[in-house]
Design a protein around this nucleic acid. Structure first.
Length: 339
DNA sequence: GAGGGTCAAGTCCGT
DNA sequence: ACGGACTTGACCCTC
């Protein structure tokens, strides 16, 4: 099975674009755009609808181009998380109607079908990661209901691309996040569509719910291990040989599992030797707040943690979460491909 | 074009 | 009580 390293949501052409892509940059063509509800509400209806149409058509074309481009990479780099912003304000009460219009929906579904065909043709592994507002395990029923709608928005896009047909043919990853915990996730699952249930994965968090909480759900859903979250939470570099990791692997039922890999920001790691893995307790003693350790680096600059995470690669695809996006995942690949 | 204020939504932490 | 952080800072307005 192909071993993959992927990146998140955006394509950039150079390090300067880490701090934003300019309107005139060609990278715009490979990335989604969005708007705000506030701005839409200030416009006349026809202006707001034109804006949504322009964004939708741009976004569908940009995702197509992105996947085409990723599909041209080395087979080990054919994995990408796609943006949630393809259909802006889809789940917002005042503007969601826009996408119910037949002319709009037909266009979107035709483009999604093309995107999915291209991804399968070029063997690009895809995923989504709904935002922090998608809290399926909230203790508030109204929040659970809106979170299901938000999750189903992602499942709808995946299904329109031709996914959600078999277990984990597409990954839509969320955190437990809510006060109802793992039981809250378990209670929400039967309310999801079959496509959504095929795609959902649950990821361990830095603060509230760790790998043990996720493993409670290992029979229900596939578990995503984020090794950096685990480190922030516990200070431990969990090993690929750990029994918990084996249980994460088996939750994928034979599908090649995915781990998430990120690093603390360079201005924190800079205090450490790049050939020695950062020591969380030493960092905390030196006054670095745990909250700051969570923020992501531009690149994967620590050779020791790169070597550590490469131990997972024979078994797990590696989703790199870095502000350097594709540049960071390419560099990691070059570093670990010969380990 | 650059810079600053703003942005739908949940939850938790630090101050 | 409020700001910041999170899956991805981008966008809009003013100058």
């Amino acid at each position: 099975m192909t071993q993959r390293i992927g990146f998140c949501c955006k394509w950039i052409d150079g390090p300067s674009q880490i701090n934003g892509i300019k309107q005139t940059d060609t990278a715009k063509e490979f990335n989604t755009g969005t708007t705000t509800v506030t701005w839409l509400k200030r416009q006349r209806t026809d202006v707001a609808e034109q804006k949504l149409w322009d964004l939708m058509t741009h976004n569908l074309n940009s995702v197509y181009k992105l996947i085409e481009r990723v599909g041209g990479l080395n087979e080990h780099l054919r994995m990408v998380r796609i943006s949630s912003d393809i259909l802006p304000v889809y789940t917002e009460p005042n503007f969601g109607y826009f996408y119910d219009q037949p002319g709009v929906r037909d266009y979107a579904e035709r483009k999604f079908a093309e995107i999915g065909r291209m991804a399968r043709l070029l063997d690009v592994r895809l995923s989504f990661h709904p935002g922090q507002f998608c809290v399926l395990a909230s203790d508030r029923p109204d929040v659970v209901q809106r979170s299901i709608e938000e999750f189903e928005y992602h499942a709808y896009m995946a299904a329109a691309m031709g996914y959600g047909k078999t277990f984990q043919d597409f990954k839509i990853n969320v955190h437990i996040a809510g006060r109802a915990g793992a039981e809250g996730i378990r209670a929400a699952l039967p309310k999801l569509s079959p496509e959504a249930r095929n795609c959902i994965t649950i990821e361990n968090e830095e603060v509230s719910y760790g790998i043990d909480d996720c493993l409670d759900l290992g029979r229900d859903v596939a578990i995503v291990l984020d090794v950096h979250h685990h480190w922030v939470r516990t200070g431990e570099y969990i090993l690929a040989t750990d029994d918990k990791v084996k249980r994460v692997e088996s939750s994928w039922r034979g599908v090649r599992p995915v781990i998430h890999y990120s690093c603390s920001r360079e201005d924190i790691l800079g205090y450490h030797d790049p050939v020695v893995m950062p020591d969380m307790f030493a960092l905390l003693e030196n006054g670095h707040k745990k909250q700051k350790l969570r923020a992501h680096s531009n690149f994967m600059g620590n050779k020791a943690t790169n070597m550590y995470v490469s131990e997972f690669w024979p078994t797990f695809d590696i989703q790199v979460e870095a502000k350097g996006k594709n540049l960071a995942s390419f560099a990691l690949y070059e570093e670990i491909k010969n380990y």
